[in-house]
């Protein structure tokens, strides 16, 4: 079983559309949507939820007004400026749950024992059936943190399922950016496919995300999406990548069918058999060859 993670650095490069299309092309696969703070893959694959679990990323502090001595020590020590005077002018301090980092220091030092530290539910995760195979996905409640732990959970469960049912591939829709959820999606996978676009920001972010996969020693290839909107930039990206030993495994042309497929709730290759679908198929074929050691 090979774990293939699709990532992008910059958002909006078409990562999820391409992952969805790959899922339809892979014969036996399990899917993991690790873009947990803006998960979109389910819009293409319409999963039927089979199992549902709550996720707790940590705890939050809460000040019990009846016990509080108003000494202010918690406010003084909180490095995250989470202990605040409420807007209603009341003299009791409260903890702003968005700012609270969950370190628990305030609860530990409160001389009156007025601060409770409780685990909170930050989201849900699911094991589902889709027409492409099993899918593990999640929904981080908006504004909640510790998505790295949720990504790890989603990925581990998906790996268990893929190993258990003899799948050929575990296909991971990674999160955008470079921080903790991305690291959690990428570290230890068999191949990272970076989806980029031929723009100055696409180029810039590509170099950073390729630096990240190199840092974690994950073999990496590049797929240039909407490659024909600026062919010169596509060629430049290819040259820079090849110079660093990173292969460009596909160029996918700009086609309105990609957005139309999204609106229809289908993958690109289900929606059309036009040239853009051919581009994606060719990219997938190279990925298979690479993971099977034929290239």
């Amino acid at each position: 079983m090979k774990e293939i993670v699709v990532i992008s650095g910059k958002g909006g490069t078409g990562k999820t559309s391409i992952t969805g299309a790959f899922a339809g092309l892979a014969k036996k696969c399990v899917l993991a949507d690790c873009d947990v703070d803006a998960a979109d893959l389910h819009l293409l694959l319409q999963p039927q939820v089979r199992e549902r679990y709550e996720f707790s990323g940590g705890g939050r502090a809460e000040i019990k007004a009846e016990k509080c001595l108003k000494c202010g020590l918690c406010r003084q020590l909180c490095r995250f400026d989470a202990v605040r005077r409420p807007a209603d002018g009341s003299s009791f301090l409260t903890v702003n749950s968005l700012a609270c980092e969950g370190c628990g220091l305030c609860a530990h030092i409160c001389p009156a024992g007025a601060i409770e530290f409780k685990p909170v539910v930050d989201g849900e995760w699911y094991v589902s059936d889709t027409r492409m195979g099993s899918m593990v996905h999640a929904c981080l409640y908006p504004g909640e943190g510790n998505s790295g732990k949720l990504v790890t959970l989603v990925r581990s469960r998906a790996r268990e399922i893929a190993t258990g049912n003899g799948s050929d591939y575990l296909l991971i829709d990674g999160s955008p950016g470079l921080g903790c959820p991305v690291i959690a999606s990428v570290a230890g996978s068999d191949l990272a496919v970076i989806v980029t676009e031929p723009t100055v920001s696409g180029e810039h972010d590509l170099l950073r995300i390729a630096g990240l996969t190199k840092h974690f020693r994950v073999p990496t290839v590049i797929c240039i999406n909407r490659s024909d909107i600026n062919s010169a930039a596509s060629d430049r990206i290819a040259a820079v990548a090849e110079a660093q030993g990173v292969k460009v495994i596909g160029r996918v042309r700009y086609d309105k069918a990609v957005t139309e497929a999204q609106i229809a709730g289908k993958t690109v290759n289900e929606y059309t058999d036009g040239p853009v679908a051919g581009d994606i198929l060719a990219a997938w074929q190279r990925i298979i060859n690479l993971t099977e050691g034929k290239e």
Binding site: L98, A99, G143, E144, G145, P176, G177
Partner: peptide, 14 residues
């Protein structure tokens, strides 16, 4: 601000 709805985005807009 960073994209998304989790801690980095909330930190930037808060």
């Amino acid at each position: 601000a960073p994209p998304g709805t989790s801690c980095p985005a909330m930190t930037a807009v808060g």
